[in-house]
Amino acid sequence: MKLKLPKGPFKAYLFDCDGTIVDSMPLHYIAWKRVLSEWNCDFPEDLFYSWGGMPVAEIIATLNERQGLTMPVADVMKRKEGLYFEILSDLKAVPEVLEHIEASHGQIPFAVVSGSTRDSVTASLTVLNLLDRFDTLVCAGDYQRSKPDPEPFLIAAARLGVAPEDCLVFEDTEMGIQSATAAGMASVKVPQPWERVLVS
């Protein structure tokens, strides 16, 4: 399937990373399930996908609160990242998005805007030989308020020197689309893995 882009022209493309550039959400979920099983913490798959774009530390803190747990955030975060890195060799790009990266690279600037850590984003993009395509990475820790707040996308636009209304955002989650809309940016919704299987 092809992504239908809104009418441009756009002066910059801003991409979420996990589930948008890289088909990493299934791998992240495997890592989450492994680490959370050590704490008897339940994390249903539909909840995992609905929280796409939420920083890792925030996910752990929210699960603690909801389930009355006391998982140490920094330790669980480190262990989850380690488990993700162990299975990273299985990572693939999302073909519908890769097509636009290849077609427009060098013509307009690109940024990654992610709720994941910089280490995770860098590792994912390095595995797929895509890291050098992006002019800047905005990751967890670079902003105060995460998606659906507009702050992460506004930081990316400012770093690229492009007005928000001239940016096109590629996102796979509702939270990300809300963030882009709040930033005054046009967006295109990337289908989830099971949606891509149905229509491809």
Rank of each mutant, 00 (worst) to 15 (best):
D42V: 10
F43S: 08
P44I: 06
E45Q: 10
D46M: 02
L47W: 03
Y49I: 06
S50C: 05
S50G: 10
S50Q: 09
W51E: 14
G52L: 08
G52K: 12
M54R: 05
P55G: 06
A57S: 15
E58W: 11
E58P: 01
I59Q: 08
A61F: 00
T62E: 15
N64E: 07
E65F: 01
Q67L: 05
G68P: 05
T70K: 06
M71Y: 03
V73T: 07
A74C: 06
D75W: 08
M77W: 03
M77V: 10
K80F: 08
K80P: 13
G82V: 05
L83M: 13
Y84I: 03
E86K: 13
I87T: 10
L88Q: 09
L88T: 06
L88C: 05
L88V: 13
S89Y: 14
D90F: 04
L91F: 05
L91W: 01
K92I: 12
A93K: 10
A93C: 11
V94Q: 09
P95L: 02
V97P: 08
V97D: 10
L98D: 12
I101E: 12
E102L: 04
G106Q: 14
G106E: 13
F110P: 07
A111I: 05
G115P: 07
S116W: 04
T117Y: 04
R118P: 02
D119T: 11
D119W: 12
V121I: 13
V121Q: 10
T122N: 04
T122K: 00
L125V: 05
T126S: 15
V127D: 04
N129M: 06
R133K: 10
D135E: 13
L137V: 11
L137T: 01
V138T: 03
C139R: 00
A140K: 02
G141R: 02
G141W: 11
G141F: 00
D142H: 05
R145Q: 15
K147D: 08
P148M: 01
P148L: 01
P150R: 01
E151S: 12
P152E: 03
P152M: 00
P152K: 04
P152D: 02
I155W: 07
I155C: 03
A156D: 01
A157L: 11
A157C: 15
